[in-house]
Design a protein around this nucleic acid. Sequence first.
DNA 1: CCGAGAAAAATGATCGATCATTTTTCACTG
DNA 2: CAGTGAAAAATGATCGATCATTTTTCTCGG
Lengths: 231, 231
Amino acid sequence: MVNAALEQRPTRASSIYLLLRDDILGGSLLPGAKLNIRDLSNTYSSGLSPVREALNRLSAEGLVLQEDNRGFKVQPVSVPELIDLTQARCWVNEIGVRESIEKGDTEWEEAVILSCHRLKRIPRFLPDDETVPNPKWAVVHKDFHQSLISACGSNWMIDTCSRLFDAAERYRNLARGAGVSRSDPRDEHQEIMSAAVDRKTDLVIELLNSHFQRTAQLVQTVVVVGEEDAV
Amino acid sequence: MVNAALEQRPTRASSIYLLLRDDILGGSLLPGAKLNIRDLSNTYSSGLSPVREALNRLSAEGLVLQEDNRGFKVQPVSVPELIDLTQARCWVNEIGVRESIEKGDTEWEEAVILSCHRLKRIPRFLPDDETVPNPKWAVVHKDFHQSLISACGSNWMIDTCSRLFDAAERYRNLARGAGVSRSDPRDEHQEIMSAAVDRKTDLVIELLNSHFQRTAQLVQTVVVVGEEDAV
DNA sequence: CCGAGAAAAATGATCGATCATTTTTCACTG
DNA sequence: CAGTGAAAAATGATCGATCATTTTTCTCGG
């Protein structure tokens, strides 16, 4: 018998990669924090190799900083980098959105509406503890933003936006960890969605840019914390 | 005494990473080729770990494809992906150039002129063997293209362009390996440079886009070869 | 007490052995 | 002879020991 969708049991390295990634993006591993390999392999009760492999992937991705013979640390953050990143997001998403609106068919429209709906519905925080953010929210949030550019016609473009989104996600989570968060991004998402399906290109871009900029503004007020920790 | 610029001896993993990367980008490792870890560690006379670490970095970068429990292979290529990639390059470079021209000062202009000059001067192939491309050329070529966007004001943007450039570089080298190469990109670079320092924004973008598209066109004619090998 | 330099400790990098999974081989059945 | 499934081989993943480098601690002369 042929096993059509051969189940791929992930390797230890891959599992650890995902866990570490979550911890970095989620902000529980602070910028600049030393990533001691023996400690980590202890935490995940594995050998050294899988941890190293995971760290190598993360360093290629830019989430972890690697210095030969000096190991790994969580990539530091800074206000200039946040500004830099936000600028890049505005620019790249602008093209993605512009092209998507031009090329997007009904299916695209529906995907945007659907992901926006899900985002509106999903609770921002866990039902039992109002201070812990709902991890599913992050997924749905990203889905929405990615849906906007999904019809642009280039996967390289989509990957690029994804990468930028993740980097920004880390800043957002750091800010939240320091007690700063948006008033209600829900309405903004709604507005963006409406403008997108109405094909009001310039409006979408304007809304999206200020959406990005406003987040960056908020985050800036607290990133200093991360920098202090980044010894 | 304080050692100001503490010389960092690269680890084996880092060296192997660079070598593998060159072989993939340079086209000596064909798309889809199996990357056997024992063989590689033999080739580089090292243990298994450094090779694995190098491969993990390359897989995070997208140059190598990793499947859990099935090892690594060189990332396959395809005509659709080349088109996709070229599109992304046109879009992203357009913004980079536009912003650079707007913000670039004299220093930027000089950097563009300088790198273009170097590109004009450096021999395309090795002096002793006219069929072997000069590895320095690739460096200088990339420098030129990166210089065009270097004043855009966002390192994330510059990194993105760099990533896209490298991906395209692999396609170029594969085409060359199959005997296809540009008539004379030298003149095109010259034209682009002139237009850039003259701040003829729209012209630069037009030239750059057709520069990218023309290369992609050529490459397409032979990429099929790579796909056949990618078994 | 300060700082230079040696010794010790900690940590990172590498190795080869071993375990797990996948792929290939091959004998057998129908 | 094709197809099945068990064994064998090949290959990938992981482990812990060991080696190399960096960081910390300690000692001592000034």
